[in-house]
Computed example of a mutant assay.
Amino acid sequence: MRDTQSAVANALTATVDELCQQFGVWKTAHALARAAWRRRQMTNQVSHLSNRMRRDVGLPENDDAPGQIRSFLWDVRI
């Protein structure tokens, strides 16, 4: 397994080196940062939603919701 990891690391290093030679270090770093940022934005997080908003979208309520005290006034059940 160690040999496999080494081969993958060497291939990745060679690919990054090739990209840096072809496009430059700053453009490669900028493209990597943008790709990481886009990937981060693609995953939707619901942990910050209040229980009212979780109910609105059909999710179960969270007992330890971070904004539970602030959203107490808005948690009106009909």
Rank of each mutant, 00 (worst) to 15 (best):
V16S: 05
M42H: 11
F72D: 07
G67S: 07
R40L: 13
N62V: 02
A7I: 02
L32G: 10
D64Y: 05
L32Q: 08
N62D: 12
T13F: 05
Q41H: 07
S71M: 07
I78S: 10
M42G: 05
V25I: 12
R55V: 02
T4G: 04
Q5E: 14
S71N: 08
Q5N: 13
A9H: 10
P66R: 06
H30W: 09
V76N: 05
R52K: 10
R54D: 01
D64L: 07
M1A: 13
Q21P: 02
C20F: 04
C20Y: 04
D17I: 07
R38C: 06
R70T: 11
F72C: 05
R77L: 09
D75A: 09
N44K: 15
A11H: 09
L19C: 07
P60V: 04
A65I: 00
W74P: 00
V76L: 06
K27T: 15
C20E: 15
W26Q: 15
E61Y: 00
F72A: 09
T15D: 10
A9L: 14
N51M: 00
N62C: 11
L49V: 03
M53C: 11
M1S: 08
T13R: 11
A36S: 09
L73Y: 08
V8A: 13
M42N: 12
T28D: 02
Q41W: 04
V57E: 02
D75C: 05
T13I: 04
I69F: 03
R40G: 15
G24R: 07
T43A: 10
A14G: 12
M53W: 04
R34A: 06
D17W: 02
F23N: 08
R52A: 03
R54Y: 02
F72V: 03
A65Y: 00
V46N: 13
Q45N: 15
I78A: 14
G67W: 01
V57F: 11
H48R: 05
V8Q: 14
W26F: 14
D63T: 10
D63G: 13
T15P: 00
P66I: 09
D17M: 10
A29K: 11
D64F: 06
W26D: 14
E18C: 10
E61S: 01
R34G: 04
V46G: 07
M42L: 09
N10S: 12
D63P: 14
L73R: 09
R70H: 06
V46M: 10
A7F: 02
K27D: 14
V16C: 02
T28Y: 04
P60T: 03
H30C: 08
A7D: 07
A65G: 00
M53K: 14
R38G: 02
E61D: 01
Q5I: 05
L73V: 05
Q68W: 01
S47V: 04
S71K: 01
F23C: 05
R40W: 12
R34Y: 05
L59Q: 06
A9I: 09
H30P: 00
